[in-house]
């Protein structure tokens, strides 16, 4: 299981990369592995205002479907349109292919996220 050290994680198997006021959000290797071949990604609309805990995207495989929740409040400033035509990118490299970029309202919310080590332990529990 690949868990990069430079990212933060959620219990919903999302990764977060912080870049100033913005966070990049995607799904983890654990998530893509358990979903199987991803066939479709429903992206959030630009400028959508999200509250932490909102479902902002949906990832579908042949036999499963999973919501992607934003762990932070803010505004969607970018969505990765490449995933519309090539959803398999999330299987191939989940960490370089983000789903959305969110401009965060309150950086304090990042403190609730898991460290790589904590996430690794969390995954071990789930297996």
């Amino acid at each position: 299981m690949n868990i990069p050290k430079n990212l933060l994680y959620t219990s919903e198997h999302e990764w977060i990369r912080v870049d100033g006021d913005q966070v990049y959000l995607g799904i983890t290797d654990f998530a893509q592995h358990h979903l199987g071949d991803i066939v479709f990604v429903e992206l959030p609309e630009l400028d959508t205002e999200v509250v932490s805990g909102d479902s902002i995207a949906v990832v579908e495989s042949v036999k499963a479907v999973s919501s992607v929740y934003s762990p932070v409040s803010g505004t969607v400033v970018e969505n990765n349109e490449e995933l519309e035509d090539s959803p398999e990118l999330l299987n191939e490299d989940p960490y370089t292919n983000h789903i959305a970029v969110i401009n965060i309202d309150n950086p304090d919310q990042l403190e609730d996220l898991m460290s790589p080590a904590a996430y690794e332990a969390f995954c071990a529990e789930q297996e």
Binding site: E60, S61, K63, A64
Partner: peptide, 12 residues
Amino acid sequence: LQAREQHIRREK
């Protein structure tokens, strides 16, 4: 496109 359907999406 079965991910739309009840047996996968259940309460959603």
